[in-house]
Design a protein around this nucleic acid. Structure first.
Lengths: 132, 132
DNA sequence: CCAGTTCATCGACAAATGTCAATCTATGGG
DNA sequence: CCCATAGATTGACATTTGTCGATGAACTGG
């Protein structure tokens, strides 16, 4: 189990302006704290929060994990309904959330819908987090 | 701007049983998909979702960023009320969420409350994400 | 002791979210 | 054709969440 850290390739990334754009660094409060660098821009915080919101659900994390656990990082809905204790519409809803957030892609073949991990999408979020 | 990637040291981590405990790997659906490894355990998905839920808010991301932007990774509430366009009770609420989730610590000195980043907390989440 | 400051807590409210039953839309097989 | 199956959509519902105003608690300076 090595996890080669793919070349990122985030698709739904809203253009990371400089990974950490500024807000402003011009104040000195009475409590005597000093600023070392600039903080995240509000627009970037919004975008990152949207991505994290899509991940911040136990069912969706399990879905991503189950899809990623398949040999080709691809699974159909029946693979999920078997394991998750949730109704089929609920699972379908979670899948839509993950697709809209850019973590999964959907491809319909015949009667079945196959979902696939977007390479680097999770890694992109993981890369930005520690630099907050 | 280098971001040295600290030695992790996650404090509030709920004991990662093996980073990816199993659920079960014993089925073969009609759609013909094959399992390569085990998925995340439901309990671990719950724990990770709780952490992510604490992060999945623009105001809280900005708070973490502002605290981390200070030279000693420490800031008082007044540093936040100056920048964020939110009422003081709302900011206090977000701070409590981040403390409860293990991303910040609070230390009161005199009239001021100082919040400090928990070293490795964000990195711990970031490390687990790509291995889903 | 009193007034002002800093921050947390409480109560209320609208909005967002997770869930399900019911329904709809393909697709495939007789 | 007709029916069965896989999955998406819809509508409804309870719960959670983000926000604020009002209030409370603790410390500081006159």
């Amino acid at each position: 189990m090595t996890f080669v850290q793919q070349p990122v390739l985030v698709p739904a990334a809203p253009k990371p302006t400089a990974l950490l754009p500024l807000t402003d660094v011009t104040d000195a409060a009475a409590c005597g704290s000093s600023v070392g660098r600039a903080a995240i821009a509000p627009a970037d915080a919004d975008a990152l929060a949207r991505q994290l919101k899509a991940l911040a659900d136990p069912a969706r994390l399990r879905i991503l994990s189950i899809v990623g656990a398949h040999l080709d990082s691809e699974a159909c809905v029946c693979d999920l309904t078997d394991v998750l204790t949730l109704s089929q519409p609920t699972i379908s809803h979670h899948l839509k959330v993950l697709v809209d957030a850019g973590f999964l892609t959907r491809s319909k073949r015949g009667t079945w819908s196959y979902y696939r991990l977007v390479p680097g999408a999770l890694g992109g979020v993981a890369q930005v987090l520690p630099s907050l």
